[in-house]
């Protein structure tokens, strides 16, 4: 074990990311190596990547949240309404937006914590409720340049897009939560064996509530970025967005069975998908090709992940047998 570099899933993800950048760089005749282009790849996926961080936590507890897309769009609409009503007061609008995300997430959280209903069913049902809220608000909300919100979503600091910075900040927060805090430990433990958590005097239901609540709040944060980037939202914006977020988490090596995984893989997955999207677009290939490639990458990563997990099991079993003999 010692001295050898351990082949982890994260390392493989990093290598794939590097290989893709090089590949697209060559295929596009060097355009892709331009710093503004390569950093810009994140602008297509940052809002998804941000939501994928708390989604990683949700899936680590062996839960799921299908309502993320419509939570995001509903809170974006809350933002828009308040933003216009207050004469473009960013602070009040942002607070209202985050509050709505908190409320939406809490609805999921309370039901997930208080009942034994499968999270698939809970969040599928609440998804329809959040969707109907978007219809209640109306058709479309748009902002053009010159508003503070578009600077937030579209601007850059130096050559680094604001979006990338927000993504990395959110990642850092969740990374610390995962690795350094009791909450992170409990999240993994709930996914592995919820009974054992309860029998340790830890309130697993409370933790589950927090996980879903945080999911809602981060959806609201993502909503503001999305508004700034796309300048508008409407009722169809969120269609399939939940699947896109979940795909990032799964691609990042977090197991839907719960327990195994982490946010580092999710970050790499988001970056890889961003590079794929932009790279293919620069080569003049459309969305259909992108979907084909993304599906292939997902399947390949799942097979590889299963293989690595099996290998890890064999190695640790061998260690266990050696331990018995001593």
């Amino acid at each position: 074990m010692k001295g050898k570099v351990k082949i982890s899933y994260e390392l493989i993800m990093f290598l794939i990311l590097a290989a893709l950048v090089v590949l697209f760089g060559i295929l596009t005749g060097g355009i892709f190596f331009n710093p503004s282009v390569i950093l810009g790849t994140t602008s297509d996926i940052a809002y998804l990547g941000i939501m994928a961080m708390p989604m990683t936590f949700v899936i680590l507890t062996s839960g799921i949240d299908l309502s993320v897309g419509f939570m995001m769009v509903s809170s974006a609409m809350v933002f828009s309404v308040v933003y216009q009503a207050t004469g473009y007061n960013l602070l009040i609008a942002a607070a209202a937006c985050l509050l709505s995300g908190f409320v939406f997430g809490s609805v999921n959280g309370v039901i997930a914590a208080r009942t034994k209903i499968n999270p698939w069913l809970i969040t599928m049902s609440t998804m329809y409720i959040f969707q109907s809220i978007t219809w209640f608000f109306g058709t479309s909300y748009a902002f053009s340049t010159g508003y503070a919100i578009t600077d937030f979503g579209y601007g850059t600091i130096g050559i680094v897009p604001t979006q990338l910075i927000v993504l990395l900040l959110v990642f850092a927060v969740f990374y610390i939560l995962d690795k350094k805090t009791t909450f992170g430990r409990y999240v993994h433990a709930i996914g592995y064996n919820e009974h054992a958590v309860n029998y340790s005097g830890v309130n697993a239901n409370k933790m589950k509530y927090f996980v879903y609540m945080i999911m809602g709040v981060v959806c609201a944060l993502s909503a503001m970025m999305y508004l700034g980037k796309s300048w508008q939202v409407n009722q169809t914006t969120a269609v399939n967005m939940n699947i896109e977020v979940i795909a990032l988490v799964v691609l990042g090596g977090t197991s839907t069975a719960g327990g195994v995984g982490g946010v580092t893989g999710t970050l790499f997955a988001a970056l890889i998908v961003g590079v794929l999207k932009r790279g293919l677009a620069l080569m003049g290939l459309g969305g259909d090709i992108y979907n084909f490639v993304l599906g292939g990458v997902l399947i390949a990563s799942l097979i590889m992940f299963a293989y690595l997990e099996k290998k890890k099991k064999i190695v640790s079993r061998e260690m266990a047998i050696k331990n018995m003999d001593e």
């Binding site: 430990r185 433990a189 592995y192 064996n193 009974h195 054992a196 958590v197 029998y199």
Partner: peptide
């Protein structure tokens, strides 16, 4: 089932 979370480490348990 209730006592330990067996896929986790000794420390974590």
């Amino acid at each position: 089932k209730y006592g330990l979370s067996v896929p986790m480490t000794i420390k974590e348990n």
